[in-house]
């Protein structure tokens, strides 16, 4: 589904990620950990072609990202739901419109009931008409999760989705991701939260990837 082959990346300075090779199988569940600034967000951006590797090959759905035209990238992103670390909303549109944006831009309709259900499910039904700047960090994150799943993607990439959530909400969110994984979606979650990882591993066969010293490695047999 997503494959890295000797991938390296740098933002123009020194190399941030080096010689990464891995393969994320369809239906797999991965956690991504590593110190702050180690390149977790950068890794995820390589996974949805916001960044192109400075060396090596990234293959998404069997296509090398460097060969993708701009429209192909757009098409690809409709199969990948992303929860961005900084959420990325359109501040002039109400929450409900932001959550349905992936459908809107691909000219697909969605019933208001379905949107209501989804918002209710992340506990934001009462905020459907609020503008993103009026939301708390945790509310924004939940909205970002709702937006990532609304289009029914094959892959979900979540960058610190629980960073601003309390434990209870974090667990609920995780349950959602586990649920989606059981439905066959491929999931990658970047997080610092070891408790969350442990909690999840009791529910699903999740593996842990760690970025350290510019390399990626599978963390210990079972963490």
């Amino acid at each position: 589904m997503i494959a890295f082959e000797n991938v390296a990346y740098n933002y123009g300075g020194g190399e941030l990620l080096s010689d990464m090779s891995l393969r994320l199988a369809p239906g797999s569940f991965h956690f991504l950990t590593g110190p702050s600034g180690s390149g977790k967000s950068t890794f995820l951006k390589l996974c949805y072609a916001e960044l192109k590797p400075t060396a090596g090959h990234v293959t998404l759905f069997d296509r090398e990202v460097r060969t993708l035209a701009r429209d192909d990238v757009a098409q690809m992103r409709r199969r990948i739901g992303v929860v961005h670390q900084d959420c990325q909303f359109l501040d002039h549109l109400p929450l409900a419109a932001n959550v349905t944006l992936p459908l809107t831009v691909s000219d697909r309709e969605v019933s208001p009931e379905d949107v209501g259900d989804l918002l209710g499910w992340v506990g934001l039904r009462h905020l459907a008409d609020a503008l993103p700047p009026q939301l708390s960090g945790g509310e924004r994150q939940r909205a970002a999760v709702a937006r990532a799943v609304i289009i029914g993607p094959d892959v979900i990439l979540a960058d610190e989705p629980t960073g601003n959530l309390d434990w209870e909400l974090s667990l609920r969110l995780l349950k959602l991701l586990v649920e989606l994984n059981r439905m066959g979606k491929t999931i990658v979650v970047a997080t610092h939260d070891m408790n969350l990882i442990r909690q999840t591993k009791s529910q699903v066969a999740a593996r842990v990837l760690r970025i350290q010293n510019r390399r990626i490695q599978l963390a210990g047999a079972d963490l």
Binding site: R70, H84, P102, V105, S106
Partner: peptide
């Protein structure tokens, strides 16, 4: 940027 991230084509 946001529109591109959620899969909007240039034409859109």
């Amino acid at each position: 940027q946001v529109l591109r991230l959620v899969g909007a084509r240039d034409t859109y």
